[in-house]
Simulated assay, not measured.
Amino acid sequence: MLTIHEVTVGYGDAPPVLTDVSVTVRPGRVLALTGSSGAGKTTLLNAMAGLLRPRDGAVTVDGQQLRDRDHAVDHRIVLIPQDNGLAPILTAAENVQVALVAGGVAPPEARRQTAATLAQLGLSGQADQLVEELSGGQQQRTAIARGVALRGGVLLADEVTSELDAGNRQRVLDLLHDEARRGAAVVFATHDAEVAAACAAELHLVDGRAQIVRG
Rank of each mutant, 00 (worst) to 15 (best):
Leu31Ser: 07
Asp158Glu: 13
Leu150Tyr: 01
Glu179Arg: 13
Pro16His: 11
Arg209Leu: 07
Ala143Asn: 12
Ala145Cys: 14
Ala210His: 14
Gln64Met: 07
Gly152Val: 06
Gln113Gly: 02
Gln129Lys: 11
Gly167Leu: 13
Gly35Ser: 06
Asp62Ala: 14
Ala184Met: 11
Thr161Trp: 09
Ala92Ile: 01
Glu202Gln: 12
Ala47His: 01
Leu100Trp: 06
Glu163Arg: 03
Ser124Val: 01
Ala116Asn: 04
Val148Trp: 11
Ala157Ile: 10
Thr19Cys: 14
Val9Trp: 10
Asn46Ser: 00
Gly136Asp: 02
Leu156Met: 12
Thr19Ile: 13
Leu150Cys: 03
Thr114Arg: 07
Pro88Leu: 00
Leu90Gly: 03
Thr43Gly: 03
Leu18Gln: 12
Leu164Asn: 00
Leu155Glu: 09
Val187Cys: 05
Leu45Tyr: 07
Leu203Thr: 14
Ala180Val: 05
Gly57His: 02
Ala145Ile: 11
Val21Leu: 13
Arg146Gln: 08
Gly136Ser: 04
Asn168Met: 08
Ser124Asn: 07
Val101Glu: 13
Ser124Arg: 10
Thr43Leu: 01
Asp128Val: 00
Ser22Thr: 15
Ala145Arg: 12
Thr114Asn: 04
Asp192Ser: 03
Arg169Asn: 04
Pro54Phe: 14
Ala201Ile: 11
Arg112Phe: 05
Val7His: 00
Leu134Met: 14
Asn46Phe: 02
Pro107His: 08
Gly167Cys: 06
Thr3Phe: 09
Ala72Trp: 02
Val9Arg: 07
His75Arg: 15
Gln97Thr: 12
Gly28Lys: 06
Leu31Tyr: 08
Val213Thr: 13
Gly50Ala: 06
Ala58Lys: 12
Val25His: 03
Glu159Gly: 04
Ala58Glu: 14
Val17Asp: 02
Asn84Cys: 00
Val101Arg: 12
Leu121Gln: 09
Ile77Cys: 00
Gln82Trp: 01
Ala200Asn: 08
Ala200Cys: 10
Thr42Asn: 09
Gly122Val: 04
Gln65Pro: 07
Gly28Leu: 10
